[in-house]
Simulated assay, not measured.
Amino acid sequence: MIWMLWLTAVLCVIYYIVIIVYSGLTTSFSLIWLFFAVICMGLAAGWEAYIKHKDKVPLWLPVSVVTMCCTGVLVFALVEILVFTGVAARDTSNLDYVIVLGARVKDTGISKSLKKRLDKAVEYADKNPGTILVLSGAKGEDEPVAEAVAMRDYLVYNGVREEQLILETRSYSTVENIAYSRVAIEEDQARKKAHRQNGPDIIIPGAFEEVPDKPIRVGVLTSDFHVFRAEQIAEKWGIPDIYGISCGSDPVLFIHFCVRECAAILKDKLVGNM
Results as ranks from 00 to 15, higher is better:
residue 88 A to W: 01
residue 51 I to C: 01
residue 125 A to K: 01
residue 251 P to L: 08
residue 215 P to F: 14
residue 136 S to P: 09
residue 221 L to E: 05
residue 137 G to K: 08
residue 81 I to G: 06
residue 174 T to M: 03
residue 81 I to V: 10
residue 225 F to Y: 15
residue 271 V to G: 11
residue 27 T to V: 09
residue 92 T to E: 01
residue 266 L to V: 13
residue 189 Q to E: 15
residue 95 L to R: 02
residue 93 S to E: 06
residue 186 E to S: 11
residue 244 G to W: 05
residue 236 K to M: 09
residue 93 S to W: 00
residue 79 V to R: 00
residue 186 E to P: 04
residue 82 L to R: 13
residue 228 F to Q: 08
residue 166 I to E: 11
residue 129 P to D: 04
residue 200 P to S: 15
residue 255 I to W: 11
residue 203 I to G: 01
residue 224 D to F: 04
residue 120 K to G: 01
residue 7 L to V: 13
residue 27 T to D: 10
residue 74 L to D: 03
residue 6 W to P: 00
residue 189 Q to T: 11
residue 4 M to Q: 05
residue 118 L to R: 03
residue 20 I to E: 06
residue 221 L to M: 13
residue 137 G to I: 12
residue 2 I to G: 01
residue 188 D to F: 04
residue 33 W to R: 04
residue 74 L to Q: 02
residue 118 L to Q: 04
residue 18 V to E: 14
residue 72 G to Y: 05
residue 195 H to R: 14
residue 30 S to V: 03
residue 45 A to L: 11
residue 249 S to D: 05
residue 258 C to F: 05
residue 123 E to W: 04
residue 245 I to Y: 03
residue 50 Y to P: 00
residue 135 L to C: 07
residue 190 A to S: 12
residue 121 A to D: 02
residue 68 M to K: 00
residue 206 G to W: 14
residue 212 P to D: 07
residue 84 F to E: 00
residue 47 W to I: 04
residue 44 A to L: 02
residue 14 I to R: 06
residue 101 L to Q: 05
residue 218 V to R: 12
residue 199 G to D: 15
residue 267 K to V: 13
residue 157 Y to L: 12
residue 242 I to M: 15
residue 83 V to L: 04
residue 175 V to F: 09
residue 153 D to E: 15
residue 123 E to Q: 06
residue 11 L to F: 13
residue 10 V to T: 11
residue 250 D to C: 06
residue 104 R to P: 01
residue 43 L to Y: 01
residue 180 Y to E: 10
residue 123 E to A: 07
residue 192 K to V: 15
residue 91 D to I: 02
residue 99 I to T: 05
residue 163 E to Y: 09
residue 228 F to N: 03
residue 22 Y to H: 10
residue 158 N to W: 07
residue 158 N to H: 14
residue 272 G to S: 06
residue 7 L to I: 14
residue 155 L to S: 05
residue 210 E to W: 14
residue 55 D to N: 01
residue 104 R to N: 09
residue 160 V to Y: 00
residue 165 L to R: 09
residue 272 G to E: 06
residue 198 N to I: 00
residue 145 V to E: 15
residue 24 G to D: 03
residue 228 F to I: 01
residue 32 I to E: 05
residue 97 Y to E: 08
residue 166 I to M: 14
residue 145 V to W: 07
residue 22 Y to D: 13
residue 157 Y to M: 12
residue 153 D to S: 13
residue 52 K to S: 06
residue 144 P to R: 09
residue 37 A to E: 07
residue 41 M to Q: 05
residue 3 W to A: 11
residue 252 V to H: 07
residue 204 I to N: 15
residue 154 Y to S: 11
residue 158 N to R: 09
residue 42 G to N: 02
residue 262 C to W: 12
residue 34 L to H: 08
residue 246 S to F: 03
residue 79 V to I: 15
residue 209 E to K: 14
residue 11 L to D: 03
residue 2 I to K: 10
residue 87 V to I: 10
